[in-house]
Design a protein around this nucleic acid. Structure first.
Length: 114
DNA sequence: GGGGTGACAATTC
DNA sequence: GGAATTGCCACCC
């Protein structure tokens, strides 16, 4: 596991992601003080998954971090859809759902470019 | 101490 | 678009 300090920051950041929005490992890591520590975020989540909305954390390209055949893949997709996030083929349109602390969580969604 | 791994990412070719 | 490299932090041989 990562140090308590980083783990705290990481989990804290993940918890700050509002429902219906998503972020990426890199973004979370960056906010936690680790510019390229995507793996650290992954480690922290893996270790402290219980009460954290881990499903709102995706890879930088918007894809689910797990392989399609991994059990948690479907789990994550289900949870995201339950919050209104559209998932196409294991992918999420970050242009629409990427969490931006500055933006209100109830603003109109930008156009979908798929 | 050294090398490999991991729910990853940015850079480069 | 893809592959290879390097960075990040902790863990395990």
């Amino acid at each position: 596991m990562v140090s308590d300090t980083l783990r705290q920051r990481i989990l804290n950041t993940v918890r700050a992601i509002p429902a219906g929005r998503v972020s990426s490992y890199g973004r979370v890591a960056s906010r936690a003080g680790i510019p390229r520590g995507g793996r650290v975020t992954a480690a922290a989540l893996r270790d402290a998954t219980p009460a954290v909305p881990w499903h709102r954390v995706l890879r930088a390209d918007g894809r689910i971090a797990f392989d399609a055949d991994h059990p948690l893949h479907g789990e994550q997709v289900s949870r995201l859809r339950a919050e209104g996030v559209v998932v196409h083929n294991g992918r999420v349109n970050l242009n629409r759902y990427a969490w931006q602390p500055d933006a209100a969580d109830d603003l109109l969604l930008p156009p979908d470019d798929t």
